[in-house]
Amino acid sequence: MSKETLFKQGAIWAFIVVELIFFSVAGSYLSVSDSAFMDFDNMLLLLKQSAPIGIIALGMTIIMINGNIDLSVGATYALAAIVLLDSMTWPFMQAMGDWAIPLAWFFALLTGTVLGAINGLIVWKTGVDAFIVTLGSMLGYRGLVFMYNGEQPTSHLNWTLVDFAEAQFLGLHTATWFLLVAALILWLVMTKTVHGRNAYAIGNNREAAVNAGIRVGPHFLWNFMLIGFLAALSAVVFYSESGSVNPNDGMLYELWAITAVVLGGTKLSGGYGSIISTLGGVIAIQLLRKGLGHIGADTETVNLVIGLILIAVLFLDRQLNRTGKEELKI
């Protein structure tokens, strides 16, 4: 690994360390609570809270490495959640007892995958830009969410499920495990498999990839199915515990996920990015949220700070990539 890549991939982790130090130090003066910020349980909780956006952001990384974007993940997330909770109330499912749980999960994940496949197919077959396609389906899927149960929340608490979701294995919460395992698998996919390498090639130089015989359409389809699946997985993880979904849930998740991915250094134009760095981006955002709360800042400041950091990152990235004073002033 060259120095440059080390620097690029290390930046987000360095930022996390800075955050940790800052909030620990500032917290010891300003903190409203007695516990230290770097408290172990606090950190575990942080990982757990990172999971819903985190799992989506992992998928978004791959979509963005492809040079696409998916704005519909928030709505997919909500619809998968509704299917998860509602399916458990179906008569035949209730008759199955706790065996209904894996089936409900399956239905939810299937929903997400199908919604992703719809996006993917449209992108492939119509040639319309993914931004527009998913902008449309963001509205459309949200409409489906409302059509399912009107403006009423959909609720179903299954205590077995709640126990499972709240369980801790080796100290880590279930949600954290899902996040980490998903990250590991996707990291392997992106670095070790042909599909992953092709994803980089397509985002980097699509024409070259096409000329080399990589079938871009099906490739996009797979990745949109993947992000749909992950959005549903994220819903499964979160709503297994909470047991109630509002039709507006998941709104703006797409924007949070994109923020995390960009903080992790993935290029908007595609071709460059890493799953691990996105994980860093997700954790950095969650740290910021918790940290600001810890030092007594209003929770609303978080939005302000994250927004400005996002812009600052963009600015720094551009400054670092300048070719110097000779460049064309275009």
């Binding site: 042909v194 390498r197 070259a208 015989g213």
Partner: peptide
Amino acid sequence: LSLADELTVAENIFLGELPLKSFGRV
């Protein structure tokens, strides 16, 4: 040049026909 500059030389030369192992691994 129709190269993907973020990828390695090897990946570019065998673009679209990377040698496969099990599970779609390179």
